[in-house]
Simulated scan of single mutants.
Amino acid sequence: MPNGPVHTAANLGALAGAYLLGTAAGADMTSFMVGGALGTFLITPDLDLSGKVRTNAEKNWGLLGGLWYPLGYFVKHRGITHTFLRGPTLLLIYFSSILLILCAAVYWVMVNSGIHWNIEIPPNALTQFPSVLGGYLLAYWLHLWMDGYSMKDHKRW
């Protein structure tokens, strides 16, 4: 199994190739690259090691890296997080839950401090989601392929 720097280098190479192909075809690759960076640096299949081994992704989270400990406690390494659909779904739901809780806590503190928080969501934010997800899945699946998992194995879905 490749180590963290090898996974990162392979993902960055694949993302660079996808960027060159996409821009040559006239596509805006910004949101795709954001998803790829997310899957390369922050939300990787190896976050299931949190609390056991300090992974690169956990280090990249800085002080917030500890928020991934419960995940590492409840799932075994190379278990559900190393599947092609269930793994990224679990990690994205976990991440969304963490983000929601953190935003709610910040909002509660701000409201109780008398600070007004006006959030404007860009009108095209939801239209960018498929592209972000595509970049994320490219990085995620490349990690799994490098670990030796095949899409042909139905147990890996």
Results as ranks from 00 to 15, higher is better:
residue 2 P to A: 08
residue 2 P to R: 13
residue 2 P to K: 01
residue 4 G to M: 03
residue 8 T to R: 15
residue 8 T to Q: 07
residue 9 A to E: 13
residue 9 A to W: 07
residue 10 A to V: 13
residue 13 G to S: 11
residue 16 A to V: 12
residue 19 Y to D: 10
residue 20 L to W: 04
residue 21 L to G: 07
residue 23 T to H: 06
residue 24 A to Y: 03
residue 26 G to C: 05
residue 26 G to N: 08
residue 29 M to C: 08
residue 32 F to I: 08
residue 32 F to K: 11
residue 35 G to M: 08
residue 37 A to V: 14
residue 37 A to Q: 09
residue 39 G to C: 04
residue 44 T to V: 00
residue 44 T to Q: 03
residue 45 P to Q: 09
residue 51 G to S: 02
residue 51 G to R: 01
residue 52 K to C: 01
residue 54 R to M: 05
residue 55 T to G: 03
residue 56 N to D: 01
residue 58 E to T: 11
residue 58 E to C: 04
residue 59 K to L: 14
residue 61 W to Y: 07
residue 62 G to K: 10
residue 66 G to Q: 12
residue 72 G to Y: 02
residue 74 F to W: 14
residue 76 K to L: 04
residue 79 G to K: 07
residue 79 G to N: 11
residue 82 H to C: 07
residue 84 F to T: 11
residue 87 G to I: 11
residue 88 P to V: 07
residue 89 T to W: 12
residue 92 L to N: 00
residue 93 I to Y: 10
residue 95 F to S: 08
residue 97 S to N: 12
residue 98 I to N: 05
residue 99 L to S: 10
residue 102 L to M: 08
residue 103 C to S: 15
residue 107 Y to D: 09
residue 108 W to V: 09
residue 109 V to C: 09
residue 109 V to L: 12
residue 118 N to A: 08
residue 119 I to L: 15
residue 120 E to F: 13
residue 123 P to Y: 08
residue 125 A to S: 11
residue 126 L to R: 08
residue 127 T to H: 06
residue 128 Q to M: 08
residue 132 V to N: 07
residue 137 L to N: 11
residue 140 Y to L: 00
residue 140 Y to Q: 03
residue 142 L to H: 06
residue 143 H to P: 07
residue 146 M to S: 01
residue 146 M to L: 04
residue 147 D to Y: 06
residue 147 D to T: 09
residue 149 Y to T: 10
residue 153 D to F: 10
residue 154 H to G: 09
residue 155 K to P: 00
residue 157 W to S: 12
